[in-house]
Design a protein around this nucleic acid. Sequence first.
DNA 1: AGCTCATGGCGAG
DNA 2: TCGCCCTGAGCTG
Length: 265
Amino acid sequence: MPEGHSIRHLANLSDTAFKSKKITATSPQGRFAEEAAVIDQKQMTGAGAHGKHLFLKFDDEYAVHVHLGLYGWLHFNRGTQGKPKDTVRLRLSTDDFYADLIAPTACALLRPNGVEKILKRLGPDPIHPNANLEHAWDKIKKSSKSIASLLMDQSVIAGIGNVYRAELLFRSNTSPFTPGSQMTKEKFESIWKDSVELLKLGSIDGKIRTVKPEHISEEEIKLHGCSQNSYVYKQTGGFCRICSDTVRQETHAGRELYWCPTCQN
DNA sequence: AGCTCATGGCGAG
DNA sequence: TCGCCCTGAGCTG
């Protein structure tokens, strides 16, 4: 399930499988049939990712805009095509690869100006090498909203979701309830830099990894057979692995927030 | 078989 | 702030 790292990952896979290739497009589910017919047999000129938005470009004339929402995914397969499930909104294929789009919140055929319109309402994406953190900082420093809400606001920073939010705030010892206006620039810059690293790391295989190797204890590995993969996200009621305080959970602006009150203040 | 939950985001009120 | 949309995994019975 997707935050910005997944979208970068899927854009990379799309380029590997489809860039500069003539694509066959179908909509087994039927809900994208007319649009699929438009791009069918066109060349994919490349994939773009910004935050949680994926853009698949065709002949530099059309782009398929995909937003996966909570449940969506783009499944890549190699080799002979199997029969698609009837929930597949869009199947893209060549002789070598096929990719099935499942349960997207958004899947729309756009012209280039439609893409620009979407990009305009998004904040900088930390995973982009040329992203400008000042755009995010300008909004944060003026806001009375909590840093927890601001990190989830895609018009402030694009690509952070509920897992990265919780883990970034923990890793920087930041209270989630700090108003943006009370953040220091140094603190924000450290969160930004950390998000660059974590998103890049996650985009390699589409998996979120936020726990430093030194915080995955031998005991834990023995006990669970594998490392626990977060500091606070979904660790409610468990002991913080740094200070042993109890990890808290609370609904905050409609989403579950996880934090350690001792480490994060 | 049915229920619940999930790493999102939109529009109504 | 709530309800709703998209789907599937992991429970419960």
